[in-house]
Each structure stands twice: as C-alpha cells, then as structure tokens.
Design a protein around this nucleic acid. Structure first.
Length: 482
RNA sequence: CGGGGCGUGGCGCAGCUUGGCUAGCGCGCCUGCUUUGGGAGCAGGAGGCCGCGAGUUCGAAUCUCGCCGCCCCGACCA
C-alpha cells in the first residue's frame, strides 16, 4: 500500500486527533449525518445496513437460543418508574417526558422509554400465573431515548437503536444461566462476525445497571486505547418481579416471584467496528458484516474497455452467484485511482481489478483492505478463491485487533503504576481490587480510568488492591472508557 | 451542565480587528472535449436570507445582546 499521506485527503490521521478522525471517516463514508435535533443522528443507508447485518446475525442467534421477538410501547407511564427505586434513580436524569397530546395536558405524564424493564415487567405480571408459563423468552428490537449531555455519533446519541432481551424464569439458577448464555452469545457474535476481541466479565457494583443484582459485560478496546462496553447482560433477581408483581404458583403450590434477566446491544457496535478496524485510510469492515464485500473495477485505457468488459460481466456474475456482495463500479467519469481510494475509505474488504493485461493472462488483481497486499488470482475458480480470501481477511482482522489489544493490555500493582500506564500508554490495565467502592472511586478520580469489568478469565491474578494495598478480592480491568 | 473554540455556496476556508463598492479562494457539482493499471487536464457554467432573532447605524458577514447547533476539555451514561 502506498503511504497514507499521499492518498487520503480530508481525513485527520488517528495520531493527530482520534475523535476528529472518527468524525471525518463516518461522514465522508456517508454512514451518518447530523440531524436538526440535538444529539440525534441520521443513519444513512451504508450505516443502517451495518446495523441490519448486526441485527440479522444476532436475531438468528436469539432464535436459536429459544427467544421470540415482540414489541412493546414507546411510552411508559410515570408511575411505572416508581416501582423499582434504583431503576428510577438511575434513569430519571435522562428521561424525556410527554406531558401534552391532542391539545390537552395528560393526566399522567409519559416517559419515552430509556429501556423497557418496567413496561415489560408490567405485562409479564399479567402473562405469568403458573410455573407452566415459564420461562418467558422475549426480545425486542427498538429505539430508545436517553437525554445525554454529551453525544458522539453511534457511541452515545439521545436516541439510539438497540435490542433488549427480557426473560422471566422460575428459579435463580435458571435466570443466571440465561444471563450467562446471552453474554456468551454476544461474545461469540462480536468476535466471530465483527472481528472484535472482547473481555467478558462482571461489572463492579458501581457500574451495575440500575435495578440489577448482577451485571456482566463484554468490553472491547478501541484503537485509541479506550474501552467500549459492547454489550451487557443483567441478572435482575426478583427486583422487578417484586416491583411489578410478577408472581407464579410453583409446582409445590407456593406463590413465588419470578427471576428476570435483561440483555442488550446497541448501534454503538457500529462505532466499535469503526474504531477497532479503521485506520488513516478510512474505514475497514470485516467481510461478514461489510455492506460491500468486493468492489470490482475495470481498468486500463478506454479504447481497450470493450475487451475488458467482455470478461468483466461474466466474472462479476460468477462472484455474485457465489453469494458474494459485490459492487461493480464501471463508471468512466472516475479514474481507477480515485476509486481505489474511495472504496478503501469506505471500508470495502477486497478490491478486484480487471485490465487488458489481466484478460490476456486469464488473471485478476486483488487487493486486500486490511493489509494492502496485492495478489494476482487466476480467473479459474475465481469465486472460490475470493471466498477463501474473504475468510482469511475476516480472521486476519480479528488477529490484528487481538494483537493490538494484547500490546495495550498491562498490569499494575499500585495506583501510581496504574496512573502512569493510563496517562502514558493508555489501554487496559489489570489490577487488584479489595472490593471497596472507595478504592474504585479513588482510582477513577486520580486516573480517569474506570473499572471495566472483573474478567472471568484474567491473564493473571493480582494479589493486592491497587488503591489501598489490602488483599485483593478481585482482579479488575481498568481503562478510560467511552 | 460548566470551561474553551467554531458557525460564510455541498465540503474546507479567507474576509470581521479598522462597518461601505460586485462577498472571494480551493475542492466538489453541471456542460463539452481530451483522458483512465493509485485521487486526470483544459475551457465554459450553476450555486450564498454570511447559523437564527433582536439591536446600534444612513449602511452590518463585520459592532452589541440573546438563542440554537457543532467540536474539544471536565462531571453523568448502551
């Protein structure tokens, strides 16, 4: 690949200003646009298609694990929020309210949902009477609103699209299994489809979802070393069941509260995709979710175009027939060089060129977005070779991200060490924690790094709390986070 | 929500300090011709309530006040 400097205009290099780079990329690649409403963005077709592919991959997995989709109202009566104390305290500051409709003031104001635990809890209370009604395994694809003070496209907007699973179970054990099962679904999806390695683990109490007993997360590392919570799964215990009276008569003829869970991922994943794989040339998407997997470009003098096109159409048809998402760009008003840069910027994983010399040689030239590597492929069995290449790119992108993460994951024994790493190198820092919230807060105050999660499978066990030096109860990933 | 910065054709900017003549430049866009294996060239052309609203003034992109939006930095969050 030629040097970045010469070919990418209008994109700020990551090293100069990462935020600027991010904004430049997503706007230039037309993934989104700002809207006239504060903090709300427009998902343009290329951005929305990423979401559609994420949806498709997750929806299939949800169905495979026994869930069904349903849809609940956007408006939530104010009184619902009062039924779970921590929940209301957690969400109150960011709720928008509908106070008037049809020219009249409403008797009870309606919140625009920030999440649907309350509405769904209310409905579940009516649907669940007997242990025979359990489990209830429902997912909802929806938009939600949280009035954010500081927004960033895809990562944090006032309105966003997401998926929220809500399940109810007869026992704690079963609900906890569900919580972990869905966390694993997220991990597997994010790693295999989005090619983003994640750390799975449990959130500390202070980072828990409002109203949850336990919260688990998958945490990803962006290219600036900051953490992004890519998905969460909550064991809600009986909290919402008690608030909404979700009770059932069990086999032993005892009236019991159901144990509920909830779990979600959002369009934030699009932001993760961009910040994990993108570089100074622009976006880079893993083949499995890339809207366009292959761009096919005819090259060479126009006088010879007819000769090229005679092969071009047949090859394009072959690739398409193999199920490859291919874009044929035969426009003559743009030079090949312009197209190369354009599609690299838009993140297309593979480019294939066909010129007169290739026609003579029964070959095509393929160029990988992830490595810049230029390959000469035979036209025979082209689709087969391309499918294999796309697979290679997918796994290479995961490996590359995993290596980056490894290089930016550190360990710290003391607060001073932790602070030094966070401010000089960035990335994730593994450190011990005594379990005291005061220590966690001290770390946050002094380093701006927060406890991302307590990993299930830490690379090392850290013996002492980084803040107070006492014996550690947990080993925690700390990082500055989005 | 606090501190800082910025809003001028689609995008990036100049002009503002010191108010005044036709608001300019690069990219993009349109037309034509020549080009096309890493962002092509020439010629012609279209496109502006200078973020919004008040005010000062004979006259405002320029000065004053208010509002809105975006970006950066902090406190809260998928």
């Amino acid at each position: 690949m030629p040097s970045d400097k010469d070919f990418v205009k209008d994109i700020t290099p990551q090293s100069v200003d990462f935020s600027r780079w991010y904004i430049d990329c997503i706007r230039k690649a037309e993934l989104m646009d700002y809207s006239p409403v504060r903090g709300c963005i427009v998902f343009r077709p290329d951005g929305y298609e990423l979401w559609e592919r994420i949806q498709a991959g997750l929806d299939r997995r949800f169905k495979e694990t026994g869930h069904r989709n349903a849809y609940f109202p956007l408006f939530i009566p104010e009184s619902f929020f009062e039924k779970e104390k921590e929940h209301v305290e957690g969400f109150n500051p960011e709720l928008p309210w509908v106070t008037e409709a049809g020219g009249e003031k409403l008797e009870e104001r309606l919140a625009i949902r920030p999440t649907s635990e309350t509405m769904i809890g209310y409905m579940y209370a009516q649907w669940i009477k007997s242990y025979r009604d359990l489990p209830v395994l429902i997912n909802q694809w929806a938009n939600v609103v949280r009035w954010e003070k500081r927004t960033m496209p895809f990562l944090r907007t006032s309105e966003f699209l997401w998926q929220e699973g809500h399940t109810a179970h007869a026992t704690e054990e079963e609900a906890r299994e569900e919580t972990m099962r869905m966390l694993e679904v997220y991990r597997e999806f994010v790693e295999t489809e989005l090619a983003i390695p994640v750390y799975t683990g449990e959130k500390t109490p202070s980072e828990r979802f409002a109203g949850a007993v336990d919260t688990y997360s998958v945490e990803a590392m962006m290219k600036d070393g900051k953490a992004l919570q890519a998905g969460t799964s909550h064991y809600l215990g009986e909290n919402f069941a008690r608030g909404f009276d979700i009770q059932f008569l069990d086999k032993d003829n005892q009236l019991k509260y159901a144990h509920t869970t909830s779990w979600g991922v959002s369009t934030r994943l699009i932001g993760a995709l961009i910040m994990v794989h993108g570089d100074d040339r622009g976006l880079a998407f893993p083949p499995k979710v890339a809207p366009i997997q292959v761009v096919f470009i005819p090259v060479g003098p126009v006088k010879l175009r007819e000769k090229v096109m005679a092969r071009y159409d047949a090859l394009a048809a072959q690739l398409r027939a193999a199920g490859i998402r291919i874009k044929e760009d035969t426009r003559e008003e743009y030079s090949p060089g312009w197209k190369y840069n354009e599609y690299e910027m838009r993140g297309v994983p593979l480019r294939i060129e066909l010129g007169p010399r290739d026609v003579d040689n029964n070959a095509v030239v393929a160029v990988r977005r992830d490595t810049g590597e230029k390959l000469v492929l035979s036209q025979d069995n082209l689709a087969e070779q391309v499918l294999k290449l796309l697979n290679d790119i997918q796994s290479a992108m995961f490996q590359k991200a995993a290596q980056f993460r490894a290089e930016h994951s550190h360990q710290a024994a003391t607060l001073a060490e932790l602070a030094e790493i966070i401010s000089n190198k960035g990335g994730f820092v593994l450190a011990g924690w005594c379990g005291d919230a005061a220590c966690e807060k001290q770390i946050k105050d002094e380093t701006k790094a927060t406890a991302r999660n307590i990993p299930f499978d830490p690379p090392a066990q850290m013996p002492h709390c980084a803040a107070c030096g006492a014996q550690a109860k947990h080993t925690v990933w700390y990082a500055r986070a989005y």
